[in-house]
Design a protein around this nucleic acid. Structure first.
Lengths: 146, 146, 146, 146
DNA sequence: GTGGTCTAGACCACG
DNA sequence: GTGGTCTAGACCACT
């Protein structure tokens, strides 16, 4: 297991005040996405609860809530008195539940872009770009090397 | 202009208790989607605030809030003492605003499905299916003046 | 969906000050257990966040945290402005994850009782008693009736 | 009394980072379990606080805390300037206290597995397997005076 | 130092 | 009225 320190020059996550999502959700989604993309590899140490709170100038409880959700999902692991680390990936949901969630997300996405007047081809093209970093990596399938 | 009356036997919209979205959001999204698909054509009369509230057994303030948002967007129009009608399509948002909203929706969508472990191809295929009914209609595009 | 009101004469859950588990966990475990046993049937309305907090003389945020976890697990459903309700049961975890959790729970249980000096038969007998209400009910397998 | 030395090639206990329990708890439970199973017989010499800390690459205070708890329970004994040894078994808890702990452990166990959807028979079968090594040994029962 | 829990109280979104 | 989020600050458990 490798521990990577974070300097002050870059951060694991940025929060956007204009974003509709609550702060803790932005943190959860952002870190989950970075882990899925392989930008945060298993074993990486995340900023401490207090550290990230200071960095983002938000409350420690907000960070703690985000980390708690990621820990429940199995994305990270919190160890009292030690720190927070990115976990080895594993599949936790049943096929049915995963499909249900995909369908729900699709429905929500379509309903929010349908009235914007974009060509379906344009939407698909942009989504493809967004998904591209995930195509050949498959970080959730690679074998453990610990 | 054609006026279509709605009887009690079918409804413009159905609300689902299992849906993550609040009721007023389901109404807004649902009607906007039907208009975009061409299932609700301009001039169609919608149920009154009180009528829809009765029909769905929800609070009138909830329907009023949904109709107010749709009216602000220019999707529907309330004529005092007459009723609520679907508007002629027109583009109200700037190119930048529309792109900003698409990008935000994409980001939200990707972050919520990325950890489900689906192949990008699978996601794109399903989205294509979902967008298919919109391909040849494009009611919101025909009067676009850009 | 049936809504059941709760009078002041009995409560969904009791917290024990001598219990090693934190308060929010006692609430989560207690309600999950009652649902699994069939004592709380789908559609039942749970006390409001403020109501349960008053009843147990704890903070509202503690109750909210417990309800949030149960909602994530799919045991209950929270609807803003409406209330909290017991959900229809469904299987959300993969076979592997369920077996992993059972093994972990077993390991924890054995390690905590092994030094108490009880006969294995005695432990098995008591566990059987504890599990008995679940044998013929199988509330998690019955079909939805909605 | 027999003294058994521990080389560097194997250890009394292993800590697992994926374990939900804190490190000191893993040490306490692990040694108590080995003593109960008879894998560590009375008089066996355990690694020193500093030695075990080095071996597991953890803090000495963590090992000291674990040994202190085991000493309080009467499982091990520290002799200044000599070393740490497994004690002769003796029953230190009252019948009531032992039953209270068993009941609490049972309650915690049931509440954590009940929602996993396993058949009670399956759970009992697996627990029986887990308890089997303890059936005919019962080192903690032979000097019980109750 | 680390993370986890709880309280007290505020504000917002929803019906 | 309902639940959801955030802040501020305290205390505890762990290393």
């Amino acid at each position: 297991m490798r521990h990577t320190a974070f300097g002050a020059e870059f951060s694991v996550i940025q929060i956007v005040t204009g974003d509709a999502r609550p702060i803790f959700r932005q943190i959860v989604d952002g870190i989950r996405l970075k882990v899925a993309k392989g930008e945060l590899v298993p074993g990486t140490r995340l900023p401490s609860v207090r550290g990230l709170a200071l960095q983002l100038t938000i409350n420690t409880t907000t960070v703690a809530k985000a980390y708690a959700e990621l820990a429940t999902e199995g994305v990270i692991e919190s160890r009292k008195g030690v720190g927070v680390f990115v976990c080895e990936p594993r599949q936790r949901l049943s096929r049915e539940e995963r499909e249900r969630r995909l369908a729900e997300a699709l429905r929500l996405f379509v309903s929010s872009v349908v009235a914007l007047g974009f060509e379906p081809e344009e939407i698909l093209r942009q989504l493809e770009q967004e998904l591209e970093p995930l195509v050949s990596r498959k970080p959730y399938l690679k074998t453990q090397s610990e």
